[in-house]
Nucleic acid binder design. Structure first.
Lengths: 192, 192
DNA sequence: ATTCGATCCTAGCACTGCTAGACAATCAAG
DNA sequence: CTTGATTGTCTAGCAGTGCTAGGATCGAAT
């Protein structure tokens, strides 16, 4: 049995290597540079090996997205924990979200911009994605206001953050006012 | 001179045909189906003809984006005009925006999601894009609230709309609550 | 040592955006 | 009217993409 176990372990290691390499390459040179050939070369295996781990490029993107979702959830919870009071928590959460998007643009794209073949707002939504939403909900539910469904409020707040993140990074919004926009978002949306 | 004029006219007609065909194809089968070969076949010319009008596929996307921006600006103004009072105008504007995004997903993608090689938030931003933002500003400026820069407020509101539009269409938000989210967005952000 | 099955790679398919060079139609000059 | 040059357009092809069939190779079990 030990032989088979070792093989499975090695396969798992290689799979993580693929995901990590794809992420690094995407973060350095953008997703358009992540081709199956380049990726195969980096991990020092041939192309078909990739397809023994993933159905295709989409699934690799999806794997990066899941990894990112877990990290984002952790970052959001850490930021919320470090702040005192509802209003400060929400502001910290918002900044942490936008910070994550700015520091990990490729991962953020994998999560929300590209097609990673993942289900959303659905029963089949993978756990890390549901958990990332839950991390938002934990803090934002406190400030939804009277008679407003916490989940609905969270969705709206999230949409605001997502819009700010994508439009800013795409050069659609002047970056210098980013902080003022966050302040306004929190002030208006959150009921404290 | 007349001969040259006729030729220029014909060229202009063909250019509009290219853009219209690209848009239609994208709207019907998605942008990934818009290949230079297919596009060339549809307009009944060879591929290189496309490159005598546009530098490449990006520029074709950009042309569709500009066309869409002009239409969106008109739709936003029409919606705002038809409503009475600041609050109703803002709500109508928001619905018109989301409606445009939903009815013209490919065009919306060309404008904000894909790389059409267009400048933004910049001096070189093409007129139709600046005008679409202006259309938002006209209505939203009224409800920015005391001491809040109208342009900054418009950017935030726009980000909210953009987030709702993209997350909903990507299946990240349950579509059935769309209207309630718009209501909440308007109620919270707009100061009436 | 030999079989046999899992593992991996070479080679190739059909497609992409884009372009060089050949060709034909059109025009101005003699 | 015939040239010659200039447009305009097309055929053919390049380098790259995601993905896969089929054969070679290696290691484990007999």
């Amino acid at each position: 049995m030990s032989v088979q176990e070792r093989k499975e372990r090695e396969r798992a290691v290689r799979e993580r290597l693929i995901v990590a390499t794809a992420r690094e390459l995407a973060e350095r040179q953008g997703w358009e540079a992540v081709t199956t050939r380049r990726l195969a070369e980096r991990i020092e295996y041939s192309q078909p090996v990739l397809y023994s781990h993933f159905r295709g490029k989409r699934e690799i993107i999806g794997a990066v997205a899941l990894e990112g979702a877990a990290e984002m959830a952790a970052a959001l919870r850490a930021a919320a924990r470090a702040a005192d009071g509802p209003r400060a928590r929400v502001a910290a959460l918002a900044r942490a979200y936008l910070d994550f998007a700015e520091r990990n643009p490729a991962v953020y794209d994998a999560m929300f911009q590209l097609d990673g073949g993942l289900a959303f707002a659905d029963e089949e939504t993978p756990e890390p994605l549901k958990d990332a939403f839950a991390a938002l909900l934990e803090t934002l539910g406190e400030v939804a206001g009277e008679g407003v469904h916490p989940a609905l409020f969270t969705e709206l707040f999230w949409a605001g953050l997502h819009g700010l993140a994508t439009l800013t990074r795409a050069g659609r919004l002047p970056p210098e006012d980013a902080e003022r926009r966050v302040e306004l978002l929190v002030d208006r949306l959150a009921v404290v």
